[in-house]
């Protein structure tokens, strides 16, 4: 597979910082689409504002809609209802989906509308300089939590499952093949599918939390990810509602 077939190569080099994990998410998405032989002419990629808003727009060569901050799922809902033949994919950041757009996330899950949503979750507001996000781990240093974050981060998978999504999964950009496989499963799922794609931001998150080298951030994901729940680590796995629950 040549990923360039799926990209607007004229827009490269991308705007992402060196070591950013978001490019790995784009790669995993393209691999999943290529494996499934999906028709790119019938796909729409909807994104929000911030670094994650750039993953598919302008990079991916298909219909793309770069919307307002927090609202990509609301735009996507209109697109899908107006033309159900379109395959609609939302990619947005943790600030976008879980903070300013949190209401749209739970309602899209509740409706179980056939949209695949990927949260490029780097636990930080990268583009605006590194403020705390709703998934910033407790104790992490950010511009707005100079003494460490006081609050519990959202467990987005638990949130979206609780709201009624049929397919929910989490992988990290270290586990790139697993991420591609989960995206493939999500795209094949008939209903609302959600992937928490744990990403890395060495520029705004890593350098404030003793991981300024991109490699250190990936190592950190490797050390802290597990497939078993209840260990206090990042749980990477799929949760698929049985047809009875659907």
């Amino acid at each position: 597979m040549d990923v360039n077939n799926y990209l607007r190569t004229e827009v490269f080099p991308s705007t992402f910082c060196p070591g950013c994990g978001h490019g790995i998410i784009l790669n995993a998405l393209i691999r999943a689409i290529d494996d499934l032989k999906l028709d790119m002419r019938k796909m729409v990629f909807v994104s929000g504002i911030g670094c994650a808003g750039w993953i598919t727009s302008p990079h991916i060569k298909a219909d793309t809609m770069h919307t307002t901050h927090g609202r990509p799922l609301a735009f996507a809902t209109g697109i899908k209802l107006a033309n159900p033949e379109l395959k609609v994919v939302v990619i947005a950041g943790d600030g976008d989906l879980a903070s300013i757009g949190g209401n749209h996330l739970i309602h899209a899950a509740r409706r179980n509308i056939d949209i695949t949503t990927i949260c490029a979750n780097n636990s930080i507001y990268g583009m605006t300089g590194g403020q705390a996000s709703p998934t910033t781990p407790e104790g992490a240093i950010t511009l707005t939590t100079p003494e460490g974050s006081y609050y519990n981060p959202f467990d987005l998978c638990a949130l979206v499952r609780g709201a009624g999504a049929g397919y929910v999964a989490r992988a990290t950009v270290y586990h790139a093949r697993m991420l591609a496989k989960f995206i493939k499963d999500a795209l094949s799922y008939d209903g609302f599918s959600f992937i928490d794609a744990v990403s890395t931001c060495p520029t705004q998150y890593g350098r404030r939390n003793s991981m300024s080298d991109p490699f250190e951030m990936l190592e950190w994901l490797k050390r802290n990810a597990t497939t078993k729940e209840g260990e206090g680590k990042i749980v990477i796995k799929e949760w698929i509602a049985s047809s009875a629950e659907k």
Partner: peptide
């Protein structure tokens, strides 16, 4: 009979209207 939805708020209402318009429907 189709193309009607009660959204979660007015922000989502206008957002979905814009999305639907780009999907080819008057909204």
């Amino acid at each position: 009979s189709e193309g009607f939805i009660q959204m979660e708020d007015e922000i989502a209402s206008i957002a979905s209207v814009i999305g639907a318009s780009w999907a080819g429907k008057k909204a």
